[in-house]
């Protein structure tokens, strides 16, 4: 049994709130630079230049990449031999979010109730997912998720008969209908299988992969490559103004499912595809 004081978790979350919002990951940054080289439209090149310059400014000046500093989504991988002391895990995470968003000049975008809509003024509460694992490790991943891209996401309960082609067409259709709204170039997370809510979780988790990281199963790796190519022929382009660079990558996660079902979820992320992890 290893003891871990939740104060350490608060401190780590606070740091990640700021770091994730100021520094675009190197994988995304490099992919934007590569895409700039292959973009074919003038307006597309121009927009990519501005997006790259924006990432440089935010990093150098430690200011938010985007004013929408997101919903605080937190994934915890908790080793079952870790004993958390010093208070509640949820409270510790929320305290980290509160401190990070206030001290880091990040925007507070959360309303307390979806219909009565009063701002909580500190960006809490976070959405927290905990996975229990064997061992005594503790890993936190912090994902600030912007509203514009989240709003273009969808879960569809398809028929098993729709098969691979039906799933691919749904994904393409979802991206096409999103147009400029999710701030393309986008990252596409796909969850196939499981139950209704499991597919959505898979799609969100898929977005945690590094740009360029393919599925370990060659079947899904091939599907990811094919979808990326098809998406980049739609023509939406940077900011929807026309061009090749509609998506930076497509990530698929699959899960066993019921003989009657074929749930498919598409979770869209924008070019401000932010996430940071820490192991305590």
């Amino acid at each position: 049994m290893r003891e871990l004081n939740v104060q350490e978790i608060t401190a780590a979350v606070k740091k990640m709130c700021m770091a994730s919002n100021y520094d675009l990951g190197e994988d995304v940054y490099n992919c934007l630079k590569e895409s700039r080289k292959t973009e074919t439209t003038e307006v597309g090149k121009n927009i990519l230049d501005m997006i790259i310059e924006n990432a440089d400014i935010s990093k150098n000046e430690q200011v938010p990449i985007c004013q929408d500093t997101g919903f605080a989504v937190v994934f915890i991988e908790l080793g079952q031999e870790v004993h958390l002391i010093g208070g509640s895990l949820n409270d510790a995470i929320n305290e980290g979010v509160r401190q990070g968003y206030i001290e880091g000049y990040l925007r507070k975008s959360i309303v307390e109730d979806p219909l009565r809509r009063v701002n909580t003024k500190d960006n809490t509460p976070a959405v927290i997912y905990i996975d229990m694992l064997p061992g005594d490790s503790f890993k936190i991943t912090f994902v600030p998720k912007g509203g514009g891209a989240e709003n273009m996401s969808e879960v569809k309960m398809m028929k098993p008969a729709d098969g691979e082609d039906g799933v691919k067409d749904f994904i393409i259709d979802r991206v096409t209908r999103s147009g400029a709204n999710p701030c393309p170039p986008i990252v596409v997370g796909v969850g196939i299988g499981g139950t209704f809510e499991k597919s959505a979780m898979l799609a969100k988790k898929a977005l945690l992969r590094e740009i360029g990281e393919r599925h370990t199963d060659p079947y899904y790796a091939g599907m990811e490559r094919e979808l990326l190519e098809r998406i980049n022929r739609i023509g939406i382009g940077p900011q929807g103004l026309g061009g090749k660079t509609t998506a930076l990558d497509v990530f698929i996660e699959a899960h066993p499912c019921h003989i009657a079902s074929l749930p498919v979820a598409v979770n869209i992320n924008c070019h401000a595809a932010r996430h940071k992890s820490a192991t305590l």
């Binding site: 501005m50 997006i51 924006n54 400014i57 935010s58 985007c66 514009g148 900011q239």
Partner: peptide, 13 residues
Amino acid sequence: FAAVGGAGALIAK
């Protein structure tokens, strides 16, 4: 007009 979504630090200038 469209401004560049996600380029908040640049636009602030």
